[in-house]
Amino acid sequence: MGKKKKIVLILLIVGLIVFAYFAYNYLTFIRDYATSDAVFIRSDKITNVSFKRVAGKIIKMYKKEGDFVKKGEVIAEIDPIDYQLKYDQVAKKIESLKSKREQLNIQMLKVKGELDLKKNIAEKKINYLDDEIKSLKYSIAELNQNIKQLKRDYNRFKSLYEAKAVSKRKFEDIETNLLALQKKKKSLLSKLEGLKKQKSVAEDELKIVYVEYKNIDELKKSIESLDSEIAATKNQLQDLKNLIDYCKLRAPFDGKIGKKFVEVGSVIKSGFPIYSIVDTRSLYVEVLLEETKLKGVKAGCEAEFSVDSYPDIKFKGEVEEVYPASAATYALVPRDISAGEFTKVAQRIPVRVAIKEGDLSILKVGMGGEIKIKRVN
């Protein structure tokens, strides 16, 4: 065998060994790892933020694309002048209603005080007249007994006088006393009638007082109506206060401005997107893995990936979930295979990978990359 043939044979053997080595390593790699270049950086929180319930002209924009924001931080403002004017008008209305209520309350207290005084006077007068009438009736009853007795004496002395058994003077004294008592009784009866009339007048006055108390009820109803109107207007005022506060757009969570949709001076409607905010703390990797590579890929599998922008920087991850349906299942225009005519292609199953290690600050939502996932038996 010539020298050249020996060299060729040696090179051939070395080549076969190298090929076998690399072939073995490749087969071992595809046995142990599932790979894909359909890799995308995603976020659980990507939100378009807008002004709630308010519309108008934007007067301030505090952030630009790429800026970080803190939860609650004011990131834009619209002109609140229209809402402020309405707020001032409603505030003045509340003050006017309160003033009116105060006047009605003063009027009610005044009327009640006057009626209470009249009621008290009328009741005292009626009680006084009741006592006077009772006393007078007692006096009349006592007088009736005396008159009755004197009448018996008068008849007895009259018979005696006619029989010349008593003197004329004695008989006349009895007659004079009887006439005096009868006259006194007539006077007391007249006085009793006058007291009864006074009592009737006092009772009528008391009835009028009770009727006038209904005016207080009407004033109370007016005050209650004002209280309800004041409460409703206060709710309206609080709502306007909220609207004024809504004129300041605040970040709903910590994150980064992904996109700015408008500029200062724009006139926008309620709900129109102003910024898109990305929560950079909730980044994850979405892998669209061919169904032929799913064997051994489960939750908990270790993963290593890089993004196309920084191919030399490696990130560590871990499979969180293998989704139960292919990406094509949710396509807006699914493939029509009812006729049985279609080209068979490997479906891609979405796999969610949590990022465990790496510099998250360089990752942007939507970035593509490559990944390898270590299979488990």
Rank of each mutant, 00 (worst) to 15 (best):
133 I>R: 00
179 L>T: 14
272 F>P: 02
165 A>T: 02
359 D>M: 04
256 K>V: 10
221 K>M: 06
45 K>D: 13
331 A>L: 08
28 T>G: 00
18 V>H: 06
117 L>P: 00
13 I>C: 12
12 L>N: 09
144 N>H: 02
160 L>Q: 14
368 G>V: 05
304 E>L: 07
345 V>Q: 11
135 S>P: 00
227 D>T: 07
12 L>Y: 08
70 K>W: 01
11 L>S: 01
233 T>V: 05
315 F>L: 01
143 L>V: 09
189 L>Q: 12
80 P>G: 02
353 V>I: 10
204 D>A: 15
347 Q>T: 05
288 L>R: 09
55 A>P: 10
32 D>C: 10
255 G>I: 04
152 R>I: 13
106 I>S: 04
342 F>S: 14
94 I>L: 15
64 K>A: 05
183 K>D: 13
296 G>Y: 14
6 K>G: 01
185 K>Y: 13
37 D>V: 03
272 F>M: 12
78 I>M: 04
102 E>L: 12
356 K>P: 09
345 V>W: 09
211 V>N: 15
316 K>G: 11
183 K>H: 08
182 Q>S: 14
239 D>F: 09
113 G>V: 05
81 I>H: 15
52 K>M: 12
279 D>V: 11
91 A>W: 02
165 A>E: 15
197 K>D: 15
134 K>S: 11
364 K>A: 07
264 V>F: 06
19 F>Q: 10
166 V>Y: 12
191 K>P: 00
240 L>C: 03
122 A>N: 01
41 I>D: 00
293 K>G: 01
87 Y>G: 14
331 A>F: 09
377 N>R: 15
346 A>F: 10
27 L>C: 01
344 K>V: 10
307 V>Y: 00
135 S>T: 06
348 R>Q: 09
274 I>V: 11
342 F>G: 11
358 G>A: 00
118 K>P: 07
332 L>K: 12
296 G>E: 10
116 D>P: 01
172 E>V: 13
346 A>E: 12
362 I>T: 04
65 E>F: 02
85 L>A: 11
14 V>L: 13
320 E>D: 09
254 D>C: 01
44 D>Q: 03
376 V>L: 13
354 A>G: 03
119 K>Y: 10
270 S>H: 14
14 V>S: 07
116 D>S: 04
216 I>W: 03
88 D>W: 13
362 I>Q: 02
164 K>T: 13
282 S>K: 14
98 K>M: 07
80 P>V: 00
194 G>T: 06
233 T>L: 14
85 L>Q: 04
52 K>W: 09
301 C>I: 15
17 I>M: 11
84 Q>G: 04
374 K>G: 08
115 L>Y: 06
198 Q>H: 14
87 Y>S: 11
370 E>R: 08
282 S>Y: 01
255 G>W: 01
310 Y>R: 00
171 F>A: 12
118 K>G: 07
245 D>A: 11
370 E>Y: 06
325 A>I: 03
89 Q>G: 15
140 I>L: 03
351 V>A: 10
